[in-house]
């Protein structure tokens, strides 16, 4: 190989390697962006918001190569509940009325399609706020160090259970004891999709009036 070609190859390699400098700056201030907009170009490259599952869990996967969780680096300034902006706290926004018409019936879809649609909803949640969604999946509670359940979620897996996505749900009112089944029970719910803010953290929630247990798993002792 001639010297000219060797130099050209080295230059190409160097060009490719210099692109590795385009990564997240740990101390860079988060850039507020309009939901759904293209990433803004700046002198210091920053992570583009790319909404993922509502709660990050070792069993919750992303499609394709993993992308960083944007909620860590982007403070959300929206209302506690996009469904009811006047609410003071995202957890209790008062009674909700769920109509008969279901906009997105994920229970009718195959596992892979349901996973893909829920993933799309979590990617661009703004377009789905207020719409009625029916979901079927596995109940998965997240507990704190004292064993108290803080988050109730439903996990939707693709056909091979290779990829999973989770969605938090909130039962309106004060659900009586025994409402929630053991973890990994198959549940079905119909509710209104909401985009919430808790201390600057943006996440999605399905607000439901009723939780239907299709198949109860064996109890695991988690409250």
């Amino acid at each position: 190989m001639s010297m000219k070609r060797k130099i050209a190859l080295i230059l190409l390699l160097a060009t490719a390697l210099t692109l590795t400098a385009c990564g997240p700056q740990k101390d860079a201030a988060p850039v507020a962006q309009e939901p759904g907009s293209l990433p803004t170009q700046s002198a210091e490259p920053e992570i583009t918001p790319f909404p993922q599952a509502t709660f990050a869990d070792q069993n919750t996967g992303s499609a394709g190569a993993a992308t960083p969780d944007p909620f860590e680096q982007l403070r959300y300034d929206g209302p506690p509940s996009a469904l009811r902006p006047e609410a003071r706290d995202y957890q209790d926004i008062g009674p909700i009325e769920i109509g008969e018409f279901i906009h997105w019936d994920l229970s009718r879809m195959s596992a892979t399609m349901a996973y893909a649609q829920l993933y799309a909803m979590l990617m661009q949640p703004e377009g789905y706020v207020g719409q009625t969604v029916k979901v079927q999946g596995e109940y998965y509670p997240l507990t704190d160090d004292e064993g108290i359940t803080r988050v109730h979620g439903v996990i939707v897996s693709d056909m091979a259970a290779c990829c999973q996505v989770g969605l938090e749900f909130l039962l309106t009112g004060n659900p009586p004891p025994g409402t929630y089944p053991p973890p990994m029970s198959t549940v079905e719910m119909t509710g209104l999709f909401d985009l919430c803010n808790d201390g600057g953290e943006k996440f999605c929630v399905l607000r439901i009036n009723e939780l239907k247990v299709l198949e109860k798993a064996s109890p695991s002792g988690i409250n």
């Binding site: 990050a56 919750t60 996967g61 992303s62 394709g64 993993a66 996973y115 990829c163 999973q164």
Partner: peptide, 17 residues
Amino acid sequence: KGGNVSGDVCTTLFGST
């Protein structure tokens, strides 16, 4: 972080979703 290595590898290799 927060990801599923097996799921990511499986999806990248086989393009399931």
